[in-house]
């Protein structure tokens, strides 16, 4: 039962409510669904919609995205054109007009597609809370969450160089489906071989994971069919797949190499 809905007009005001134990809400796509099904314990809701944490700011090659920025905002941002195709694999327009960057960090896989992208991009998360503002690598927030009373105010990422961003999401149907296997990657090559690779996987573990085994195998080798098959097989060591309504753990493990290869071969 919801006792109050707060719509603070600043981060400081939001932090006060959060410190008092309220539940922070981005676009409401997760929290309001719980309110509607009656599965939320008695609490206050704290909306970040008007707290001044929306918007996309570009500073050279660094982009800072406010936590209450919606996926639709990202789709409309020319600076983030490289992410548009990935955003369009997430849910549907009426959801993308609500769902936020911040909220997406806290949903379990196979949801949380944007978090997978942020992991591949090596993003930094800005956090407000009773202990004051702090920054953390996105993998820390993805594994450990944030402390009681804390909430995300922004994410910051570096724009990948042209031709280094890869994204492919295997879905159960062509639009509006959670991930069976999602691959987001920033891969640099020189003289036809990989010099660096950050590969994030979604849908194959409770949280987004880095395919470190694949990254290791690919470094110094070309992005070719057989190499990628090998890398995909190696990546099986990095996953902890689950059964759900979309696909079984067996299926996800079985097709991971196929989708890793398809992601990086384009």
């Amino acid at each position: 039962m919801i006792t109050a809905v707060r719509v603070p007009d600043s981060v400081a005001a939001a932090a006060t409510y959060a410190a008092a134990g309220g539940r922070v809400m981005g676009g409401g796509t997760i929290v309001m669904a719980q309110v509607n099904s009656g599965s939320l314990a008695e609490t206050e809701l704290i909306s970040l919609r008007k707290a001044g944490v929306s918007g996309i700011r570009v500073d050279g090659r660094v982009v800072r995205i406010g936590a209450a920025t919606t996926f639709a905002d990202i789709e409309r941002s020319p600076e983030l054109a490289f992410l548009h195709a990935a955003m369009r694999t997430i849910a549907s327009p009426p959801i993308r007009n609500l769902a936020t960057v911040g909220g997406n960090l806290f949903v379990p896989q196979p949801y949380g597609d944007f978090a997978v992208c942020l992991l591949a991009l090596g993003a930094t998360v800005e956090i407000a809370g009773p202990g004051g503002p702090r920054r953390a690598p996105v993998e820390d927030v993805l594994t450990a969450g944030v402390a009681q009373g804390e909430f995300v105010t922004a994410v910051a990422l570096s724009l990948p160089a042209a031709g280094t961003w890869f994204h492919h999401k295997a879905m159960r149907r062509k639009l509006n489906s959670a991930a069976i296997v999602a691959v987001a990657a920033v891969v640099d090559t020189a003289d036809g071989v990989v010099t660096s690779a950050r590969i994030a996987l979604g849908g194959v573990a409770p949280r987004p994971v880095r395919a470190v085994s694949a990254e290791r195998l690919l470094t110094g080798r070309p992005l070719e069919h057989d190499v990628l098959n090998e890398a995909g097989r190696a990546a099986r060591a990095d996953i902890a797949p689950f059964d759900d309504a979309y696909a079984s753990a067996w299926y996800r493990r079985r097709v991971l190499p196929v989708h890793l290869r398809r992601a990086l071969l384009g």
Partner: peptide, 9 residues
């Protein structure tokens, strides 16, 4: 979102 049916796509 879990009981999937084909969309227009």
């Amino acid at each position: 979102s879990e009981y999937l049916m084909p969309t227009a796509a």
